[in-house]
């Protein structure tokens, strides 16, 4: 009853890859927005916000993504909220990504020297102005390489959403395999498609890191 792999299967895989991309984008945008709030919370002058953000990060980082997915997809309906696989996957990834990106960005915010905050303060800029006009533009430069690097993790981690039945790339591979049973061939193809999605991103991240390091060397040469 097994048949050979055919163009229809390939097209099915590509559709899955498309959903993997959509999911990654949702995770990146949602998680980015959440992560921004987490980073602001972690560096806030208000103790309560700092604590809330830290607790959130600890809880999310201490929970496997798979469990977050189960909680959202199976847990919420049992409380009376029905939720589609796409939304469940998007929400779970958003929660997961916001904690990690939040921590990465907190580090970037904190790596802008305190003297920059102070110089802006002495010029009578308000705290919001200091943050948005002086600190964030510098933090964003520092944050770009690790953020792009983390995007690769996001793409790969979307594969976990296959367990709640969302048909992204991994799930598409599983479904095809169920019908033609060619696991080695199919998962090699799936892996190559993941590679094609991730490679440009990680290459870009490495280039950013190199040019960042080069700029830093140039800066040091100037100030030396």
């Amino acid at each position: 009853m097994t048949t050979a792999i055919n163009p229809g299967h390939l097209q099915f895989l590509l559709t899955g890859a498309f959903w993997t991309l959509i999911l990654s984008l949702m995770a990146f945008l949602g998680g980015g927005a959440g992560g921004f709030l987490v980073a602001l919370g972690r560096t806030s002058p208000f103790r309560l916000l700092r604590i809330l953000a830290a607790v959130y990060v600890q809880i999310v980082q201490g929970t496997p993504l798979l469990i977050i997915l189960f909680l959202i997809y199976f847990g919420l309906p049992s409380l009376g909220f029905s939720i589609s696989p796409l939304l469940a996957a998007g929400v779970s990834l958003t929660i997961y990504v916001s904690a990690y990106l939040g921590e990465i960005w907190r580090g970037c915010l904190e790596s802008v020297p305190k003297a920059q905050w102070e110089a802006a303060e002495c010029l009578a800029l308000s705290r919001t102005q200091r943050l948005f006009k002086v600190i964030l533009p510098q933090a964003i430069r520092i944050a770009t390489p690790p953020t792009v690097g983390f995007s690769v993790q996001i793409i790969k981690n979307t594969s976990l959403t296959s367990v709640v039945g969302f048909v992204e790339l991994t799930r598409a591979g599983q479904l095809i395999n169920n019908s033609i049973f060619e696991p080695f061939l199919i998962y090699i193809i799936v892996a190559s498609i993941y590679f094609c999605l991730c490679f440009p991103v990680s290459a870009f991240s490495q280039r950013l890191e190199r040019s960042g390091a080069a700029r830093l060397r140039a800066l040091k040469a100037v100030s030396a």
Binding site: A115, A119, C122, A124
Partner: peptide, 14 residues
């Protein structure tokens, strides 16, 4: 801060 200007040893330009 509007009435006081301060300059540090380390310039601290943006």
């Amino acid at each position: 801060r509007l009435d006081v200007g301060i300059v540090f040893q380390s310039y601290n330009l943006f």
